[in-house]
Design a protein around this nucleic acid. Structure first.
Lengths: 229, 229
DNA sequence: TAGGTGTGTTAAAATTGGTTAAATAGGAAC
DNA sequence: GTTCCTATTTAACCAATTTTAACACACCTA
């Protein structure tokens, strides 16, 4: 099951971007516009982690965090704020935060920090990838390293399997080279990048068994699995 | 009991200050001067958290962290570094860090971050392994070194038994080679690894008595016991 | 359109794992 | 202590996976 994130952010732009990005990364996100709304939403949902802006109308992030801690002293909280004052950071952690990020920040960094916290959170779900995962004429079994096509059954090697999973997690979205490299090869280097290119070729051949699926090259960026009807 | 911290920092000034400050704050601290020494110290002590500098002589922090993860994939790690490049931060978390702080930083902030992590860090559990443990058509008695299959009753040797237990504790999760080696053979060496390969083969034959169970190879990583429905 | 950089393809090289059998170690029985 | 048995390690060889290398081609910018 997807981990549920509560995002409380009054800046509509940032809120939307966050919600969308994290949604694409496998989370179920709920966006609230201010502290009051955030508190109500928190009560209703069963969230695995909260991302709170500090400066918001009606109710600031610290106050909201205290309310959340009063209801449940376990749900992880990340503060997201433009205030980088030492005293605010200390205060955030004292209230019971798990992390404190200063704007502007990188989405990717936020993502890995969320993952690091959920890794230790008792309520964590072992991120479940649908098994089997069906797309077009293909049936994919991540846990068995297996891909069934109309023509054949392919036993995937470890690298093929991980790469395929990333594509299926990101249908119609660009998979950035460096992200895939860091995730699968644990390191973004020239030779690993060339190794990945070799695997891209292999995976392309497999999914070609369904002609409606294609892996496009986004020059200088990465790749995108698209499904054309 | 005081939480035990391993601090690996080559700058003697910073190392002393950190060690002293955290000592005053209720931790039992051990200070190592470089990556090599840090690795040895880690093996000997039973630490609750590691604070690693990134740039050190002999062995850098990333390499040391990988070694620590190979011995135990649970002990929290905080990187402490002057490098604030996005790619390094991502890499740090990818290796399995819990936090990443950029110098110069506030002692007080480090302290609250340590506390936030320890709050979620799972205790060294004396978790009772179910006896018997039933999976699919197999019934496993860890304490009796015994595995019953529909076809036979197998008396396991010590090594077979320990290996099987690790797999049953980690269904659908990768069992990292080095972690299993350190746990069963107490040492991750070439010959022990080959010895383990021999045992993997034996154990594979046993669990093959239930065709829904398989031990897959995760190349370069380890093995994964999967149950297919 | 030329030149640099990034990507595609293929094959060889290197690394890692699988299998089998022989060698060794270590304990129990004599 | 010797003998026998079993568990474990070492070894050799083979197989699978991954990386490296070389070269061809595509894309972007000046």
């Amino acid at each position: 099951m997807k981990p549920k994130l509560l995002i409380v952010e009054d800046d509509p732009n940032l809120g939307e971007i966050l919600s969308e990005y994290l949604g694409l990364k496998g989370f179920e996100t709920t966006l609230s516009r201010d502290g009051d709304e955030g508190g109500k939403t928190y009560k209703e949902g069963d969230f695995d982690l909260c991302i709170l802006d500090l400066m918001m109308p009606k109710k600031d992030g610290f106050t909201l965090a205290k309310e959340i801690r009063a209801m449940d002293d376990n749900t992880p909280i990340i503060f997201l704020t433009a205030k980088s004052m030492k005293q605010d950071i200390i205060k955030g952690f004292t209230i019971g935060a798990d992390d404190y990020m200063t704007k502007p920040f990188s989405m990717e960094e936020l993502l890995v920090r969320i993952q690091a916290i959920l890794k230790r959170s008792t309520k964590k779900e072992v991120e479940e990838f649908p098994n089997p995962f069906i797309i077009g004429a293909l049936t994919y079994y991540y846990h068995e390293n297996k891909l069934k096509t109309p023509a054949r059954e392919i036993n995937l090697t470890t690298k093929e399997n991980e790469l395929l999973r990333i594509f299926f997690e990101n249908i119609n979205q660009t998979v950035v080279r460096s992200v895939a490299l860091n995730r699968i090869w644990k390191d973004d280097s020239y030779f690993n990048a060339r190794s990945m290119d070799v695997y891209i070729a292999k995976v392309r051949k497999y999914i070609a068994d369904d002609p409606s699926l294609k892996i496009l090259t986004i020059h200088g960026e990465g790749f995108k699995l698209v499904q054309v009807k």
